[in-house]
Computed example of a mutant assay.
Amino acid sequence: MHGLGELEGKVMDVLWSAAEPMRVRDVLDALTSARPLAYTTVLTVLDNLHGKGWVRRSRAGRAYVYTAVESRAEAGARVLRDVLDASGDAERVLLHFARSASPDESAILRRALRQDGSK
């Protein structure tokens, strides 16, 4: 995901697929990596994600549990919104995106525009 480092993205993938809040140990156990990760590495990544506003944490006994602040789709939409806002030319960016969309993606966009126009 844009705006996240490689390990941050992997940690977010774990949290987005989780049904409930996760402890650092749970996240560490769920991560599959070519190299073993230290508990403190995952703790640092989660702390950084919390500071960036990607995750929320709450106390569960003596430890924190972590959840994603928003769904993967919501985060993707927010990142896209940030790109459009920062581009200085949202129309041009959207047109380039529309030209690069697959047929399935184009159908989704057309369907969304039809639904939005009926309101």
Results as ranks from 00 to 15, higher is better:
G3S: 14
L4T: 15
E6H: 11
E6C: 07
E6D: 11
E6T: 14
L7C: 10
E8M: 07
G9I: 10
V11F: 03
D13Y: 01
W16D: 15
W16C: 15
S17D: 10
A18I: 13
A19K: 13
P21R: 06
M22L: 15
R23C: 03
R23E: 08
V24K: 02
V24R: 04
R25S: 04
R25Q: 09
L28P: 00
D29R: 09
D29Q: 08
L31E: 04
L31W: 04
R35Y: 04
L37Q: 01
L37P: 00
A38D: 12
T40D: 09
T40N: 12
L43H: 06
L43Y: 05
L43S: 08
T44Y: 02
T44V: 06
V45R: 03
L46C: 11
D47R: 06
L49T: 03
W54Q: 14
V55G: 05
R56C: 08
R59P: 00
G61Y: 01
R62G: 10
R62H: 08
R62T: 11
A63G: 08
A63I: 10
Y64V: 08
Y66V: 14
V69N: 11
V69G: 05
V69Y: 14
E70K: 12
S71N: 09
S71V: 13
A73R: 10
A73I: 13
A75F: 02
A75S: 12
R78H: 13
V79R: 15
R81P: 00
D85P: 02
A86I: 14
S87H: 07
S87R: 05
G88H: 10
E91T: 12
R92C: 05
R92A: 15
V93I: 13
H96M: 07
F97G: 09
A98Q: 09
R99V: 05
S100E: 08
S102N: 03
D104V: 12
E105Q: 07
S106M: 05
A107Q: 07
A107C: 02
I108W: 01
I108M: 06
L109K: 01
L109W: 01
R111Q: 09
A112Y: 00
A112R: 02
L113P: 00
R114G: 00
D116P: 00
D116C: 02
G117L: 12
S118F: 00
K119S: 14
